[in-house]
Amino acid sequence: MKTSALFACLALFIPLEMLIAGTTKEYENQYLQAELALAKKNALYTVFDLAGGKILIKAAGMTLREIPVQDIGIWGNGLKPGAYLVIEKSAFKEPERFQIDPTRIDEESPPSTDIDALERDDMPTRYTLIFEDGVFVSVTGSPASMDERMISMSLDALEYLSRPLVILWKKINGENYTVIDLEVDSVDSQSLYWTITEKSAGLFLLPED
């Protein structure tokens, strides 16, 4: 009984898997082939260049926007070099589209600057991009005020305490689970939420060992 309990304890400390599936030229090769396939399509895709510390919004191989990453954290059991599709964008308060009410339209007067529209500033600064195959990208905008900093630190602490248990639970159930924490500028964080759409593809370029 005691022996089995000891083994169970030790098992907790055995690295579940190397956190990164591969950081070699081979990984890069597969990554480049995956990007080449995406570049042939006329759709936007996102490259999370964790090696270079930046997020690239790309189309047809061309970088349209580069977002610098201030801090990177990687948790979980590895990533493949291929493309992952965004399944969902999850935020505490998700932006909602306005429903146009035709009875409120006044043809005679031009529209005021107080407009009912979804704009970048309406986007959240803290959210999770849920990709297929158990890949989660948690994006946090740098907190501006002390209040925001306190809330951010509390949420970070909660995540840091709960995540190991989730990793363990997923491992026991044989599910993939990788979380990438990214801290970016607040406005960049909103721009990223705006730009990345569901079903769009993401690629991950990992840091070297």
């Binding site: 907790l12 990453v69 990177i72 990687i74 948790w75 979980g76 840091y160 190991p164 070297e208 060992d209």
Partner: peptide, 26 residues
């Protein structure tokens, strides 16, 4: 053991936390 695991992982040591400046050149 559970507490230690949580602390280690909570610190980002167990599964890794990368600072951009710490990455070696390929």
């Amino acid at each position: 053991s559970a507490a230690l695991l949580i602390i280690l992982e909570g610190l980002g040591i167990y599964y890794g936390k990368f600072a951009r400046t710490q990455r070696p050149e390929p």
